[in-house]
């Protein structure tokens, strides 16, 4: 098995706006992400980073290019196969949390496992409880999202992303709706997941402070990668215990 979780070459995404006008959102992107990497994707709005994330998450299909995720070529999969890969291989964390309303924390966390099937209810419950305490919310099992703060909701979302033991976690502006305190809390969880459990994380952000938590910064501009550099250790060292 290859050491690469993500291997993308020449990825192009073109939006056909009308018959004559088309916009190229991604202009031949190539990116390789190794196992246990913690990557920040940065760029101004309109730079193509969100489109790239959607393609990475198999929510959107590229116009051309090759995308290998965890040794599986996912470029030519149909909708059902993509749904299965999203379920097994990818954990999503969104800016708006995207938890199901009026649904308890535990049920929200279990959701991806419900769609996976073949897991008995007891096992599922145990695993969800474990993840809930991993994100520091033990005791909130029965709380619905409207009774939780933004930070807490995002931590539930992270637990949900983890339940199927995905190959990568894709976080799209996960701190965009959070205040500084909660931002740090959420980023500390990501850091811990990456460092202690070796989980590969790709995170989109436009906040340099957030990017500083990661190990590698990939900067997009006008549908191209203009910078791909390791984050200097010194900056994050201060936050280590």
């Amino acid at each position: 098995m290859s050491n690469r979780v993500i291997d993308i070459s020449n990825l192009v995404k073109t939006y056909q706006i009308s018959e004559e006008v088309s916009v190229q959102a991604l202009k031949g992107i190539s990116l390789k992400v190794k196992h246990s990497e913690f990557v920040a994707i940065m760029g101004a709005s309109g730079s193509g980073k969100s489109t790239f994330m959607n393609v990475l998450g198999l929510l959107d299909s590229p116009t051309s290019g090759r995308y290998v995720l965890d040794s599986i070529d996912v470029s030519g999969l149909n909708d059902n196969q993509k749904a299965e890969i999203r379920n097994y291989k990818i954990g999503f964390v969104f800016q708006g949390f995207n938890l199901l309303s009026r649904t308890t924390a535990l049920e929200n966390i279990e959701l991806p496992m419900m769609y996976r099937g073949g897991v008995n209810a007891g096992e599922m419950r145990d695993k969800a409880r474990g993840l809930l305490s991993l994100v520091g919310l033990a005791g909130r099992e029965g709380h619905t999202p409207n009774r939780l703060s933004g930070g807490e909701q995002q931590r539930i979302a992270i637990a949900r992303a983890l339940i199927n033991d995905p190959a990568i976690i894709l976080a799209d502006e996960p701190t965009g709706n959070l205040d500084t305190k909660n931002t740090i809390e959420v980023m500390n969880i990501f850091t811990r997941l990456n460092r202690e459990l070796g989980i590969t994380i790709i995170l989109v952000t436009h906040e340099p402070d957030v990017a500083d938590f990661t190990h590698r910064k990939v900067v997009f501009r006008d549908g191209e990668i203009i910078q791909d550099t390791p984050v200097r250790r010194g900056k994050t060292a201060g936050r280590k215990k």
Binding site: A83, R86, N87, F92, N98, L100, Y115, N164
Partner: peptide
Amino acid sequence: IRMAIGAK
């Protein structure tokens, strides 16, 4: 949300 996390 359901589709994103793997509902067919």
